[in-house]
Amino acid sequence: MVTPADLMDLQGRLMDRYNSGSWGSGFPDDPSQFGSCFNNFADVPDPSQFGQHTDALLETMTLLAPTGFDTGTSDGSGNPVTGNANTALDQVSTAGIELDDWTGQAADGFFQWSQSWKTGISNQFAAAAVLRQLLHAEAAVWTAALEDLEKLGNDAYAALEAADDEFDTGAGEISTTLKVVGAVVAVAAAVPTGGASLSILAAVGAGVTVASTGMDVYAAGQTESKKFATCCPRDVLADLMDGVRRVEDAVRDAEDAIRAQLDTNLAEIDGNWDEFCQPPPTLTSVHRNHIAAYSGLGTWGGGS
């Protein structure tokens, strides 16, 4: 996995190679760009750092899961990441707390509240799934972007070598393929939404761009070609910077799509907070000294 630090090393090697070459008049206006071509990527999200966050979110999902689920992502071996329902949550019901013969106003209130509470948890589960999915999308974008940039840097290095070679006629260009530039903003796997009530969270799954299968989101053929002239460093640098710009554009487009999904979700959650997170039942608002008098609380098993 390519890291931002790898790119800093690579641009240093590019600068060194330029400085050690014999270029006649074919030098670029600003050769120092060889040594700074990847500066914009010095502290971008590091693909190697996403795993701890997506793993933690998977644990959250597992604990909140109202049903068995498929994350729509895959692990390092390409196997689908799935989980089971957490039955511990079923305790939030009159049956779950073994008071299913509890009757009366408080019982009814608790029963209704527990249903809404579980729906809220399902919404939170779906939101965690969306967050994880979008983090995967980010990871995938940056994984591909940094791999593309490394490829550009290596090809630029080889092109400089050829340009500095008196027996290479410069008639052959180095062709490469870029993944992130060719990435098609595609439909992702559906976010698991068992029991969720906020429809937008379900829709988000269908709209999530880029990341549908873990870190590798680019189907075969979804690439663009990039060529490097090998005749002089001026042309090599022009091709290098063109490639860097294309990667930057592609990253911006992909992150714009991710941002749109985030905005949609944030607005939906903000606008439906009580559905997303059920307020406590009225039972809990009764003062300690009045609890015994709380209407209906004393009617278990038909007794009073």
Binding site: N40, D43, L135, E138, R252, I258, R259, L262, D263
Partner: peptide, 11 residues
């Protein structure tokens, strides 16, 4: 650097 679209605050 401003590269891409910084989505960190939204995330």
């Amino acid at each position: 650097s401003g590269v891409g679209t910084d989505v960190s605050s939204r995330f």
